[in-house]
């Protein structure tokens, strides 16, 4: 079937738009994944912090670093966990922002795909009708 140059052009446009859209969707899915992971970590860290606060002053606290347990000061561990929670919270907020951005982009991209789609369909239809 010898497709007319106009049809081929519209088709190429449509394909690029669709590819961009699917890429955006992939990004959003990845963002969701990462966010889920961070949320789980945040929950874990909060649990740890709670337990650390319940411990006595002179309790032995260790941190597993690689294959070895390293003894740590309780206050130091506490501070570390706090810092980690802070970091994770910031990261979550950032991810939220990017997600918003990506969704906006996705919506606009979807609209543009739709605008490309209708002339394409019209062209195809005209070819088949004739």
């Amino acid at each position: 079937m010898a497709s007319s140059p106009a049809l081929r052009e519209v088709q190429r446009d449509l394909e690029t738009q669709a590819n961009a859209l699917s890429k955006l969707q992939k990004d959003i899915a990845k963002n969701h994944q990462v966010r889920k992971q961070y949320t789980i970590q945040l929950g874990e860290n909060e649990l740890v912090l709670k337990e650390l606060e319940l411990l006595n002053e002179n309790a032995n606290v260790y941190k597993l670093i690689g294959p070895v347990l390293v003894k740590q000061d309780l206050a130091e561990a506490n501070a570390n966990v706090r810092k980690r929670i802070e970091y994770i919270s910031a990261e979550l907020k950032r991810l939220e922002g990017t997600l918003q951005d990506l969704e906006d982009k996705q919506n606009s991209k979807r609209d543009s795909v739709c605008t490309y789609l209708s002339p394409f369909l019209a062209l195809v239809a005209s070819r088949f009708v004739i």
Partner: peptide, 13 residues
């Protein structure tokens, strides 16, 4: 007991 508190932290309990 050496209890894992999470995130690689352990405590003697």
């Amino acid at each position: 007991f050496l209890v894992l508190l999470g995130e690689g932290y352990y405590a003697d309990r």
